[in-house]
């Protein structure tokens, strides 16, 4: 809505269409859950719901980061490869006690930040398209990882990693608590801070941002760093869940994180979006995946549905905002 709208226009806009615009995803999620509950009595069982949420948490962490990058007209295809690389890094300590966990986290975050820095530098300073920069990073990380492991899976991990991934505090999965914490922290940064406003400004109009005294390059680089760090943390939590490091931990998360963000209304053209709506996109995605399994469809069906959803969601939000 532009500031020029008259009060009358504004009152008109409170219609069915605008309600659907605003809460469409929530309505869709609820409808999906109703369908799931009717289709399979298993769906609403606490065990299944907790299971779904536990699976969703690492993806949620990645989506928080992906949102930052998409907001500045970017895209990060290297997140999944980074998740696996961080997982391999975690095993490199060959630690069997929990004392190593803080060290693992520090190392993982440091590596992730470095990766994000390079991505951001290539995009902001070298004018490389985000697609190519993060694509190249994806391949480079993949090669480095395989060169280190020789392709074999490893499973030397401190026992505490498993607790982080699938343990519970007062019945709530630890990784879900972490996701909530991460999303709130970055949500505040994005929607309530000066930096957040700068990110939206750079995303919607870099030139105007520059003229307003914002350094677009620095903002863009920071967004890539945030994205990589979120992905790195997501990788550690996913690792604990899987237990064994294959070289493909997190495979598919690059597409899934973009799908979820786009479904959550984060505009690929930059400058529009909300972290929490993007997380709602994650919820829709995992419920759909769960539904496919509960209905007994072949798991490949998820790929087809995901493909249709991403095209459909992108088209929906484009017409909505056009």
């Amino acid at each position: 809505m532009t500031p020029l709208d008259t009060p009358m226009q504004r009152s008109q806009s409170i219609s069915m269409a605008s309600v659907f615009e605003r809460y469409g995803l929530v309505i869709f999620l609820v409808a999906l859950m109703v369908v799931a509950a009717v289709a399979s009595p298993t769906f609403l069982r606490p065990a299944n719901l907790v299971n779904v949420l536990t699976i969703a948490a690492p993806l949620g962490m990645v989506v928080v980061g992906q949102t930052f990058v998409i907001l500045v007209r970017g895209l990060d295809l290297s997140v999944a490869s980074l998740m696996a690389t961080v997982a391999v890094l975690a095993t490199a300590f060959k630690a069997t006690t929990n004392e190593a966990i803080p060290l693992i986290f520090i190392a993982a975050i440091a590596l992730s930040a470095l990766v994000g820095l390079v991505n951001g530098w290539l995009v902001a300073k070298r004018n490389v398209s985000p697609f190519l920069a993060t694509l190249a990073m994806m391949i480079i990380l993949q090669g480095a990882r395989f060169a280190y492991t020789g392709g074999a899976p490893i499973s030397t991990l401190p026992p505490g990693m498993g607790f982080l991934a699938s343990g519970r505090i007062l019945g709530v999965p630890v990784n879900l608590i972490t996701l909530a914490f991460l999303a709130t922290a970055f949500g505040i940064v994005l929607h309530r801070s000066r930096l957040g406003r700068e990110i939206f400004m750079v995303g919607s109009n870099p030139k105007a941002a520059f003229l307003n005294g914002v350094a677009p390059d620095r903002v863009v680089i920071l967004c890539y760093v945030i994205c990589s760090v979120c992905a790195g943390i997501g990788g550690l939590f996913l690792l604990g869940y899987v237990g064994t490091v294959s070289n493909w931990v997190g495979q598919g998360y690059e597409l899934d994180s973009i799908v979820a963000a786009v479904m959550g209304g984060v505009a690929l053209s930059g400058g529009r979006g909300n972290v929490f709506a993007a997380l709602l996109g994650v919820a829709v995605l995992v419920v759909i995946n769960n539904l496919v399994l509960l209905l007994g469809f072949p798991i490949e069906m998820q790929l087809i549905i995901k493909g249709i959803i991403i095209i459909g969601a992108a088209a929906f939000y484009r017409t909505r905002l056009a």
């Binding site: 690929l268 995901k306 991403i310 095209i311 992108a314 484009r318 056009a322």
Partner: peptide, 19 residues
Amino acid sequence: LRVHPLIVTLGMSSIIFGG
């Protein structure tokens, strides 16, 4: 649909692969 080709072809890729 006037959707970014990256998204369209990524989605199509997923559909074709799944199929």
